[in-house]
Amino acid sequence: MAKASSSRQAITANRLRDGAVVYLAVDGNWSENLAQAATAPDGDALKKLFDRAAQSARQNLIVDPVAIAVDDVDQTAPVSFREKIRLRGPSVRPDLARI
């Protein structure tokens, strides 16, 4: 199986008050929609995103921010299996799927 190639990263976290999966969006807010996520092509850009995420964590908006790889072609798709499940919801409950 061909591996998805990825050179871009986005930042994900869980929202503090309800635990929802969120992504750092281009406008600096946190969105439940990966399509709105800001993606970084390199380390410097990623660091900038991280600084913003750390600020959000200090403001008690989100917890545990991490960088995730997103697919080069389809930037609304995470590369790792774990992140796919976080994005969509439990694979065994399609009725509860987020997207």
């Binding site: 869980n14 309800d18 635990g19 929802a20 999966v21 545990d64 976080r86």
Partner: peptide, 12 residues
Amino acid sequence: LLNGLYLQLHAY
């Protein structure tokens, strides 16, 4: 955690 509340993949 002492009150059984975890943060999991999708929510608490």
